[in-house]
């Protein structure tokens, strides 16, 4: 038996809310970026030392993420099938928003972003970078292309959350008559606030270009970089001698 439409939507809503929860946690932690390399790197290290717990959390997060995507694709396919002959002229009654109409597109962009983001900051060795993870991030953001791409992605995230967040409450029935305007606005504000929070980071990196604190950090070691690496994906980190990273 196929799950009912509302059940599918409930999965969307619950996973969406879980992801929003993750975003809020992620954002709170990331604010340490502004405090400097020490605080941030200590936080990162703390997380990395959680071992199994971290892995469990990451697997859980991945599962939630995939479930969210799966429901989205399924619901969208069904929605397309529900109107086999399209209208020639169709106008909005004025209640849908640019954000609500483009959830699939914004979702796809966010997915692409997340893949690159994880590859860039999670699966790139930062131990030998000047300023460690903090340094890796800040050096990346100093690159205008990366910073602007990040900021653009955050706008897309805001767009996605501007509809998604309040929508989840409607789907879960966690509203009541008379609240409609209220929760829609609240969803809009919270969604954009989260996105704006993240937005400030590449902006900070790009504009301020902060340097790691003048402290006794170990001289950069040369990391072995296989010149013949075929994995020539975008933004490949190249470690320079000064312990900074440039992105090819």
């Amino acid at each position: 038996m196929t799950p009912s439409s509302i059940l599918k939507k409930t999965v969307m809503a619950l996973t969406g809310l879980a992801l929003v929860g993750f975003l809020i946690a992620h954002l709170s932690g990331n604010f340490l970026l502004f405090k400097g390399d020490k605080a941030f790197n200590a936080y990162a290290e703390f997380l990395e030392h959680q071992g199994g717990l971290l892995i469990a959390a990451e697997v859980g997060l991945l599962a939630v993420f995939l479930l969210h995507i799966y429901s989205a694709i399924r619901v969208t396919l069904e929605n397309k099938a529900a109107r086999p002959v399209p209208y020639e002229t169709k106008q909005s009654g004025g209640t849908s928003t640019f954000g609500s109409r483009t959830m699939m597109i914004s979702g796809a962009i966010i997915l692409l972003f997340v893949i690159l983001h994880v590859k860039m900051f999670k699966f790139t060795d930062h131990e030998h970078v000047d300023g460690e993870l903090w340094g890796l991030v800040m050096q990346a953001f100093a690159n205008p292309v990366i910073a602007l791409a990040y900021m653009a992605a955050m706008v897309v995230l805001g767009l996605h959350l501007s509809h998604g967040f309040s929508s989840a409450f409607q789907t879960l029935g966690l509203t009541k008559p008379g609240w409609a305007k209220c929760y829609k606005k609240a969803g809009l504000v919270v969604g954009w606030l989260i996105a704006f929070g993240f937005f400030t980071m590449p902006l900070y990196g790009l504009v301020v270009k902060p340097k790691p604190g003048a402290k006794e950090h170990a001289p950069a070691k040369t990391i072995k970089h296989d010149e013949n690496d075929d994995d020539a994906s975008v933004f490949r980190p190249v470690l320079t001698e000064k312990g900074t990273v440039s992105w090819s």
Binding site: K9, T171, G173
Partner: peptide, 26 residues
């Protein structure tokens, strides 16, 4: 199809039935 909470139905409903009913249905 599935509801994606965009309230276009409410906007065109000749009797102005509220989407608050959809929340209640959920």
């Amino acid at each position: 199809g599935n509801c994606t909470n965009e309230s276009e139905c409410e906007a065109e409903c000749p009797k102005e039935i509220s989407v608050a009913n959809i929340a209640r249905l959920n």
